[in-house]
Amino acid sequence: MTHTNDGIVQAAGCVLWRRSPVDGELEICLVHRPKYDDWSHPKGKLKRDEEPLTGAVREVAEETGYRAVPGAELPAAHYFTAGRPKQVRYWAAEAGPGTFTPNDEVDRMLWLSPTAARDRLTQPRDRTLVDALLDALRLT
């Protein structure tokens, strides 16, 4: 069941980040969805009466296997999908413990530098979230 306000599909997700275990540099998590053959930030539709932040953390866990430790809220994305308006609220979230296991919804996951993540993302609107994360972390 999709939670809607005024017919708007409500979704939430995180720009998941970590410090590289190799060199300590910032890495951003991207997921590949075979249904759409795209690379995006982990996100998904909210359940009925689910708080957006709760949904964002749940989606990260479902899609990546990692626990998200949320930080600053990032700009929301607004777009149309299947002819319906959609709003996706995002948070910066540091990756906690976890292990990725491929599933039907997400078959691949990558940890990439901000530049590589920006280049790999399928939707231009998702690229602005990389910059918003860097601003939130004051790394720019």
Rank of each mutant, 00 (worst) to 15 (best):
Y36G: 00
D37K: 04
D37R: 10
D37V: 02
D38T: 14
W39H: 04
S40Y: 05
H41K: 02
P42C: 06
K43Q: 14
G44C: 07
G44R: 05
L46N: 01
R48W: 11
R48P: 01
D49I: 00
D49N: 10
E50G: 06
L53N: 08
T54V: 14
T54H: 10
T54G: 03
T54R: 09
G55Q: 08
G55N: 11
A56Q: 05
A56C: 06
A56S: 05
A56D: 06
V57K: 02
V57T: 04
R58Y: 05
E59G: 00
V60C: 12
A61Y: 14
A61L: 15
A61V: 07
A61W: 15
E62W: 10
T64M: 09
G65Q: 07
Y66K: 03
Y66E: 02
R67K: 11
R67P: 00
A68M: 09
V69G: 00
G71N: 02
A72P: 03
E73S: 13
E73D: 06
E73M: 13
L74E: 04
L74P: 03
P75L: 12
P75M: 12
A76P: 01
A76N: 07
A76Q: 07
A77E: 15
H78F: 14
H78T: 06
Y79S: 01
F80P: 01
T81G: 03
A82E: 13
G83C: 11
G83H: 12
G83P: 11
Q87I: 13
Q87D: 10
V88A: 12
R89G: 00
R89D: 09
R89I: 04
Y90G: 08
Y90W: 15
W91Y: 09
W91A: 05
A92T: 04
A93G: 09
E94M: 02
E94L: 03
E94V: 03
A95W: 04
A95S: 14
A95D: 06
G96Q: 10
G96D: 11
P97S: 10
P97W: 04
G98F: 12
T99Q: 15
T99M: 14
T99R: 15
T99E: 15
T101N: 12
T101L: 14
P102C: 08
E105K: 08
D107L: 06
R108H: 13
M109H: 03
M109Y: 04
L110R: 12
L110F: 07
W111E: 05
L112R: 02
S113T: 15
S113F: 10
S113N: 09
P114E: 03
T115D: 14
T115C: 00
A116G: 02
A116P: 02
R118Q: 06
R118P: 00
D119V: 02
D119Q: 13
D119F: 02
R120C: 06
L121S: 02
L121F: 05
L121Q: 01
T122I: 08
Q123E: 15
Q123W: 14
Q123F: 14
P124C: 07
